[in-house]
Write a protein that binds this DNA or RNA. Structure first.
Lengths: 215, 215
DNA sequence: CTGCGCGCGAGACGTGACGTCTTGTCGGCG
DNA sequence: CGCCGACAAGACGTCACGTCTCGCGCGCAG
C-alpha cells in the first residue's frame, strides 16, 4: 500500500503544450489504423451528429482510452482519418497547366464537384467543416492541412496564367481563388443547389471574365 | 380506473404533417418570448455545441415540455429567435439604389461585414449555419427565411443595373449574387480571414470587373 | 356559476454517451 | 528476468436527452 506511483505529478513532462504526452514510439499502429478506418465508416453510416467515441472504439475493437489518449476530440480523429484515408486535398494533387486556363480550371472544378458528390468523401469532409465552424482551433488545423493546400494550387495556376499575360497583372490571386471556391463551398455546405458541371463551368467563366486584360 | 382518457389515439388529428399539433390559440405568448430570449442569450454565452434545452427552459423559467411541445429541435428554436429577435435578413432590408452600383454593393457588404462582427448576431447565425449543414430539413427552412431573402435583394439590385446598361445583358444574376456572398460566407464560416471593409470592397470590385460591358 | 380540457411549471424517470479510472495482459527495453 | 507503459475491457459518476406524471390556473361550454 506504499510506493504508489505518486499523485504528486512532478511537473508536466517538461517540454510543451500543457498535456503530458504518452510515448509515441510505443504507439500501436494496428489500433491506430483500426480507429481511423472505423471512424470513416461510422461517419458515413450515422453522420457526424450521431458519431460517438464509444461506437468508434467498439467498431475498431479498441479501448476507449486508446482514443482519448491520442486525440483531443472526435473531430481530430476524423481529420487524421480523412487526410490519411485517401481524400488527398480537395482538388487533385495539382491543377493541370495545359496553357488553357479556362479549360484547366473547368476540369479541376468539375473533378472537385464529382468528388463532393461521393458520399465516402462528402460525409467526413462535411463533418470537418461543421466541426471547424464551431471550434477555431480545429479550423486552423483543418485549413492548414486541407483547405490552404487546395487554395495554393489555384493561386499557383493563376500566377502561371498571369505570367503568361492571360490575366491582368493587378489581380489579387488569393481573392480570385476565393471567388472560385467560395460560391462552390457555400452551395455545397448549405445545399443551395446542385453541384453539377453546369454550375462549375459557369462559375469559372464568370470569374475569368473579371480577370482578363481589358485591352 | 376506468374511463381513462384513452390510449387508443383515435387518428392523428386528421389534418397533416404526422405530428398531432397542440392548439396554437392557447399558446402562452409570455413563455414563447422568454424561450426565444433565453436561447439567444445562452447561445452567445456558451456557444451552440454546449447549448442545451434544459438550460433554455431553466433560464426562461419554463417547463422543458413547453419547448418540446412547440419546436422539434433547439436549432428550430434558434431560428425563430433569430428571425424575430431583430436580426432582419443578413443584409439590410433592401440594397440601396443610388444609380452607382459599385457604391451600393460596397455599402451593403460593408454593413453586412459589420453585422457579422457583432457577437450578438454572429453566435446564433453561426449556430444556424452549422445546424443547417447537418440537417437538410432545417437548411431548407433557414434558406427560405433568411438566405434566400438576402440573395433576392442582390439579384434585384443587379437587375436594375442590368436594365440601366451598367452590366452585360447575358450575366446570370443569381450566379453574380453567389459570387458576392460565397467568398464572404466561406471566409466568415471557416474563419479564413478578417471580415473587414478592405476585403468586401475588393470582392465587390473583382466581381463587378466581370460583369461590365466589354466594349 | 361551475366543470372540464389543456397548456403550463416543475421535476422525476430511464437511456445513452460522456470522459475518467481500474484491472489484468502483453511486448519491448534495460 | 523484471519493469514500464500502451493496450482491451469495462465499471463508474455525471449530464443532457426526450418522455412522463403531477397539480395549477385560465378560458370556454354547459
Amino acid at each position: 500500500m506504499s510506493q504508489r506511483p505518486g499523485p504528486e505529478q512532478p511537473e508536466d513532462g517538461g517540454t510543451a503544450a500543457g498535456r503530458r504526452q504518452p510515448d509515441p514510439t510505443r504507439r500501436n499502429a494496428r489500433s491506430r489504423a483500426a480507429i481511423l478506418m472505423a471512424s470513416l465508416q461510422l461517419v458515413g453510416e450515422v453522420g457526424y451528429a450521431r458519431l460517438t467515441i464509444e461506437a468508434i472504439a467498439a467498431r475498431a475493437g479498441v479501448g476507449k482510452q486508446t482514443i482519448y489518449r491520442w486525440w483531443p476530440s472526435k473531430a481530430a480523429v476524423l481529420l487524421d482519418a480523412f487526410t490519411e484515408g485517401g481524400g488527398e486535398g480537395g482538388p487533385e494533387a495539382a491543377v493541370p497547366d495545359t496553357g488553357d486556363l479556362a479549360a484547366d480550371l473547368r476540369a479541376v472544378l468539375r473533378a472537385t464537384a464529382d468528388e463532393f458528390s461521393d458520399p465516402a468523401f462528402e460525409a467526413p469532409y462535411r463533418a470537418l467543416a461543421v466541426a471547424g465552424a464551431q471550434d477555431a482551433e480545429l479550423a486552423r488545423e483543418f485549413d492548414a492541412r486541407l483547405t490552404d493546400v487546395g487554395t495554393e494550387l489555384y493561386v499557383a495556376r493563376l500566377r502561371s496564367a498571369r505570367d503568361a499575360g492571360q490575366i491582368r497583372g493587378d489581380v489579387d490571386l488569393r481573392l480570385a481563388a476565393d471567388m472560385l471556391t467560395g460560391p462552390f463551398f457555400q452551395r455545397w455546405l448549405a445545399r443551395r443547389g446542385p453541384l453539377d458541371h453546369a454550375f462549375t463551368d459557369a462559375l469559372v467563366d464568370a470569374v475569368l471574365a473579371g480577370l482578363r486584360p481589358r485591352d
